[in-house]
Design a protein around this nucleic acid. Sequence first.
DNA 1: AAGGAAAATAAAAACGTTTTTATTTTGGAT
DNA 2: ATCCAAAATAAAAACGTTTTTATTTTCCTT
Lengths: 357, 357
Amino acid sequence: MATEIHRVRRTPTPTIKTLAEMTGYSIATISKALRESPVVAPATRDIIYKAAREVGYQANARGMALRTGKSFQAAVLMPVTAARDYEWDGVEYTQTLSGISQALDGTDYRMSVHVIRDAADGAEAARRIVDQGLADGLIFSGILAEDPRIDLLVAEHFPFVSMGRCHKDLDYAHVDIDNEWAAHAATARLIAGGHRRIALVNPERRLSYAIDRIDGFVRAFREAGLDAPVELIAEGDLSTHFGRKTVIDFLQLDDAPTAFVCINESTTLGVLSGLGSLGRQVGVDVDVIAYDDINVSAYFTPPITTFYQPIEVLGRTLGQFLLRRMEGEDPGALRQVFRPTLIARQPDNLGGRLSQS
Amino acid sequence: MATEIHRVRRTPTPTIKTLAEMTGYSIATISKALRESPVVAPATRDIIYKAAREVGYQANARGMALRTGKSFQAAVLMPVTAARDYEWDGVEYTQTLSGISQALDGTDYRMSVHVIRDAADGAEAARRIVDQGLADGLIFSGILAEDPRIDLLVAEHFPFVSMGRCHKDLDYAHVDIDNEWAAHAATARLIAGGHRRIALVNPERRLSYAIDRIDGFVRAFREAGLDAPVELIAEGDLSTHFGRKTVIDFLQLDDAPTAFVCINESTTLGVLSGLGSLGRQVGVDVDVIAYDDINVSAYFTPPITTFYQPIEVLGRTLGQFLLRRMEGEDPGALRQVFRPTLIARQPDNLGGRLSQS
DNA sequence: AAGGAAAATAAAAACGTTTTTATTTTGGAT
DNA sequence: ATCCAAAATAAAAACGTTTTTATTTTCCTT
């Protein structure tokens, strides 16, 4: 909105008609003046501005939305599961929303959030947003290998940016992490430290990035001339509970893992909790490498080695890309894949108790 | 929206005019039929339903919003600070939004989120929401002792529910925690365990609940016939970093605290991190009592005693109250103050190293 | 068949703003 | 003073839906 008139006291909500009565100009002239159209004389514009300030006029979003065909909303699908004990559910979402919101600051756009509970819910929400004109663009994450939302939105030419990539060869705006690389790098570090029994704490395989992380895990072993211990790939709901249960289950195995590669802070906290309960020590009995959206592993005891990509940065990029997409920019130019930064806090070899390879 | 017609394939977005052309009925009749008005004959209604289904008609939200004067949005102000190292910023917000969203499920309302960075930002956002018809109701937290948002919205008779209470005697819908009671209970437990040097890790005093928690802290000491160690009340931004810094600073004092009462999981994690760095043990050198929105203290090592109130429940209540407020219900009937549940995981007396009183 | 009332449907208006089209005003040239 | 073009402003239309008012249809009674 080009005009943000400072609010002063007023009684009923003023409309353009109110200003027309005050100034004697037509509603068309007033609308153009407030939009800073060059066809309105400067003296006329000043009179109109003054009147608007006097009554604290604010353009009504509903009238604008209907006339312009734009809701001026960027919708975000925020996943929340119904899983019990999923306390850390979507914890990084606040930072994601913050980043998106930063990108929208100073523009005409506001952010709306649609909570979704599963993949079908997400597809339905996307459909509804398009059909009912609820927003002018859409951002969503938790991308499936075959994601119906992407199919729908590409077909409708509806502006969107996905956080992650599906496994179809489609042209759409996206922001992603190089998950294959991150899992590879974490696993390779542990192999170099001497580990052979490495567990991968991973999301469910229907999610695109779960597959990517498995690929990176397996590649690290292959490049070291080793067989990947695929029975040590745990798939779950990413909760702290899942992380804790995984470590407790796996450490009961005869050939128990000596290291864990975790997908997020939540599962990392669960792994630490399980180790604490079993009287095991990070860096002594087991090594752990985390992945951080919000750099919280620095505060674990002991501080944990992690691959860190601030998710707020991703959020900001998502927001920027969406604004450009809604302006009509080609989706092919709106793609970025980030590599997280390694923050080494542990030596990856049980403090020297493992021979390095 | 009374009618959710199942989507089938279609080309341009169908409007009521599309259906009028298909059926021969007027747009007024079609609108009434889809709204299930009793003045439309059943046979007519069935014809219209069939046509709508056939083209996947969905009412356009913009047209509805303008005509009805309702945006069908419940706005939430979500606070995000610009503080460096505030990784856990708003972590409980995802659960709050989830709760609110649950309350809105199955209703006509959608949730929009407005990120705010400080109190002035929040007041401005509230003003804008009212003035521009951006939402039909508002939810916000982080209530100041004197909160301009509450003043404004009460004066405008705009529907809202606050998460927390200001210190003015105004009549408005709210959901809150009994923070005075929770701080009192936590402090009293530690006093009963023999602690006298107790630190309160607290938010800034301009926030209403910060004052409440200080009151509870002081009352516990007074009731034990003791002077409260007010120099051990730390005020900060609630970050993990603040919690860590507080414990490191306070443990350097000559008369260092032997116990900490923390305001949230974030500061608790920071306190644990600081203790880890100083080689101190929870339950041996220092006792810690947390406050949990998302029950994550169970996963800390060792598991921490906490007062737990699932914030998703608060969120749901916020959502329910707002719906009722928007229906015109009296704000006096829409108030609830929750007492968190104690989950004892530590004995509060340094494992017996303190004499009980 | 005529009359009256209720049911059903259509026409008109409304919501607030922007954009398109039409008209008026202004300024400059002759 | 007249004419023309550009600038400025007003009138009309548009956006999609709902609600109010007007009209038509249906049904029942006499």
